[in-house]
Design a protein around this nucleic acid. Sequence first.
DNA 1: TTCTTTGCAAATGCTTTGCACCCAG
DNA 2: CTGGGTGCAAAGCATTTGCAAAGAA
Lengths: 149, 149
Amino acid sequence: MSNTELKGTVKDIFSAYLEQNGHRKTPERFAILAEIYDYEGHFDVESLYVKMKNHNYRVSRATLYNTIDLLIACNLVRKHQFGKNLAQFEKSHSSKQHDHVILTDSGEVIEFCDPRIQQIKATIEELFNVDINHHSLYFYGTKKATPKK
Amino acid sequence: MSNTELKGTVKDIFSAYLEQNGHRKTPERFAILAEIYDYEGHFDVESLYVKMKNHNYRVSRATLYNTIDLLIACNLVRKHQFGKNLAQFEKSHSSKQHDHVILTDSGEVIEFCDPRIQQIKATIEELFNVDINHHSLYFYGTKKATPKK
DNA sequence: TTCTTTGCAAATGCTTTGCACCCAG
DNA sequence: CTGGGTGCAAAGCATTTGCAAAGAA
C-alpha cells in the first residue's frame, strides 16, 4: 500500500465522519489532515502551525485546535500529555497500536508494543462492565548506566 | 498500622529527603504534606489551596507547586493528567499501586490493579536496557448499556 | 440565502517567575 | 548572619472564546 493510497483512505474516513455528523467539508480541514499525516512522530499545535505557515497555508491556531478535536473524535489522531502542559498529538490510523517509554533525563520517547495490554483491557471490560475505547500507557525511566551485556 | 503511624512514616521519608538534598525543613512543607495525605482520592492545586485556607493555614499557590514538586521527587506524590489541562495529584506512599479507568461520558475515575503491568515493565526494562521509575496506565471508555448478566 | 466555519485578537486559567521580606540552619 | 524559602502579584503560555467576515450547502 502506497503512501498516497493510505492518505486517500484517511481522507475518506474523515470525509465520511464529517458527513455523518453534519460538519462541513472545508479545505482547511483536509489541508490540516494532510499535514498531520505527513508527520512521522509526535507534534504539538505550535509546530503544526509553523509547518503550515512554511507551506504557505494560512490557518489560525483556533482552527487547528478545532480540527484536531474532530480528528480525535473519529480516531484519526491521538492526543498525549507526557506529563507536560503541552499537548502532543500523533496520527493513529493504520499505524500499529503502540505505547511509550519516556526517558525522563533526555526527554527521548521510545515506542513499543505488548500484546498483554489487550488482555488487561479485556479483563477490565469484564470486571467493570465497561467498553474501553482506547488507552494510554507510559513508562517513565532512565537509560541504565551499565551497558547491555 | 494506624493512620497516625503512617503519617509519621511519611513525614520521616520527606524529612530525610529534604536533608539529603540540602533543602530546608520548613513548617509549610510539612503542613502541605499532611493536608495532601488527608485526601483519599485525587486533588488539584486549587482544591488543596482552598482546603488549607479553610484550615486557616496561609500558603501561596507558588509554595504549593514548589512543595508538590519535591514530594513527587521523593515518590510521596503522583501526578496525573487525565487528558485535561488541569494536573491532578494523589498520595502514593503505602497506597497500593493502581491504575485508572476514566469514563469519558461521566468523568468518573475507577481504580484497578493488575499484576501483568509489572511483567510488561520487566520486559521493557530488559528490551530497552532502561530502569523504569514509574508508569501510568489509563483506559478510556464508557459504561456498557447492557447490564451485567 | 443560510448558517457553519474561519481568522484574528482578546480572554481564560493553570503554572511559573520576580522580588522583597522572612526564617531555618 | 546568610542564603534558601515564602507570599504576593505580575508574567507566561497553551488553549478557548467572541465576533465579524467568508464560504459551503
